[in-house]
Write a protein that binds this DNA or RNA. Structure first.
Lengths: 277, 277
DNA sequence: TATACTAATGACTGATTGGTCATTTGTCAA
DNA sequence: TTGACAAATGACCAATCAGTCATTAGTATA
């Protein structure tokens, strides 16, 4: 096992128990039996480790499920097989699943939030593809609602699997959920998530923000905030967006000023994206 | 508004944005426009604030929903009214709902975990009571599964309400979920969560651990751990449980030793409970 | 005005954090 | 045995944290 893998597995265990913030690099290195310096030979930072973990296990989880769904030819048992695959993967990588289910994406790590959003969309597509294959056009009115129901089922029942030490019959669970999903697909008629709503939600918000819109948002934010440092930082960044004149270090510093204030984190991220810092 | 309320509301806003760990007391006091010292006149610690917040808003949320369910006499619209109440409360207290939904209970705050578990059980009972009232004995086979489905529905759709800034028609959503719940109640036949399983899960685990069982668990843990400090601490605490001889300060210190190691936190909590430190 | 009291402050402490880097250790070929 | 290089170490640093406490500001009574 490579050192990187060793660190990742040690870290995963601790992250699942304590969360990202509450687990220190020191703890991880002690648990892995290496020194702190050795950690930083494998990873540039703690954030890089976290991002690496998410990428690695998320892709593994998604490809596991995707493979099962894609390779299953008959439609009769597809739902059952899907749930089986999902829950067995969760059980296999239970430490990661715990992190995934809790979605404790409250760390000031913007990259991680968009990463999770991205993987969430991949999962949506797997489920949607599966539902369309089984019900083709029958459930066109409720297909997006069905995605959310399936995800809701998985979420609640995963709690049982992950956080209680009781032996569970995943076969029966998958049967039960396949039955429920089929019931909803066939008989549910009320549409809540329309095609339009679904796409509004899933458009990555920052792609839609044009430079002009962002400038307006900055204007508005300047009015909102009280702190003079924030006001000035926003003003300078606004001018920088119109006509670049400041050095990269100054721009970075100004963005850091914004990041220090929670209400400005969102806009800081957008500005950073726009200025390509 | 009292100072306590002012702090709680300021804190809630920041907690919803950043989580408990990532929000410092300094930030809270700045946001509330008071000094750090003033904070500690109202709350003994940050943990006390967090626990107070959970208690206050959780009780408010639960009683809101409970009142609607209890006061609704006809059964025909009860499911719809329940979902309406739930989602409207979430929208009203959206900051708290964000915290509640994320359940970021990874803080090393054992009291908080059992608190959340307690409130979760209260919610279960409201849902179960409602389902039994509507379907009386019809759905005795699937009543516990239905609780989990209802909670799953609420969880997934709450994401839309809380984390996307899109205008949503909660009326249609509640209609849609009432329809789905009714479908499952009437036609779903497979039982996964049996009466027995449900009770196993909901018994607070530590009540079940007798002194003898705990002693055995300590024995086992001594074998598992490598660290000599942990081994010795466990041994001393084991002897303390059999025949008390150490001073409270020493016992506290030994338990702290265990708490420093994530794999021993669970057992540390149980020992602490048993020795009544 | 003087006194007594509470409310509020913010500089300070000790602990912990993520991250660095001069130093040591281990492993080769020559 | 030597020397050159890479791998690994852990003392150290600046930053940040929760929490404290000597001090000050504000207010009411005499």
């Amino acid at each position: 096992m490579s050192k990187k893998q060793l660190i990742m597995e040690s870290a995963l265990e601790l992250f699942a128990q304590q969360g990202f913030d509450a687990t220190s690099v020191q703890q991880i290195t002690e648990h892995a039996g290496i020194s702190k310096g050795a950690f930083y030979l494998s990873f540039k930072s703690k954030d890089e480790l976290i991002n690496g973990l998410i990428d690695h296990f998320m892709l593994s989880l998604i490809s596991d499920i995707d493979q099962v769904v894609k390779n299953h030819e008959t439609h009769t048992e597809l739902l059952y097989e899907f749930y089986q695959a999902a829950f067995h993967t969760f059980q296999k990588h239970s430490d990661f699943a715990k992190i995934f289910i809790k979605e404790q994406s409250k760390t000031p790590n913007e990259e991680l939030i968009s990463k999770i959003h991205h993987y969430d969309k991949l999962i949506d597509n797997i489920i949607l593809g599966m539902l369309d294959r089984i019900y083709s056009e029958e459930n066109s009115q409720t297909r997006y609602d069905l995605i959310y129901c399936v995800k809701g089922f998985i979420h609640t029942y995963s709690h049982l699997i992950l956080f209680f030490n009781v032996p569970l019959d995943l076969h029966t669970l998958s049967r039960s959920l396949a039955e429920k999903t089929a019931l909803l697909a066939k008989h549910s008629e009320t549409t809540f998530i329309t095609e339009e709503l679904y796409h509004t939600i899933n458009e990555p918000f920052h792609v839609h923000v044009t430079k002009e819109q962002l400038l307006e948002m900055i204007e508005q934010k300047i009015e909102e905030v009280d702190d003079s440092t924030l006001k000035e930082s926003l003003n300078l960044l606004k001018e920088q967006m119109i006509e670049p004149s400041l050095s990269p270090a100054i721009v970075k510093g100004l963005i850091l000023n914004l990041n220090n204030h929670p209400a400005c984190k969102q806009i800081a991220y957008l500005i950073q994206d726009c200025l390509e810092v």
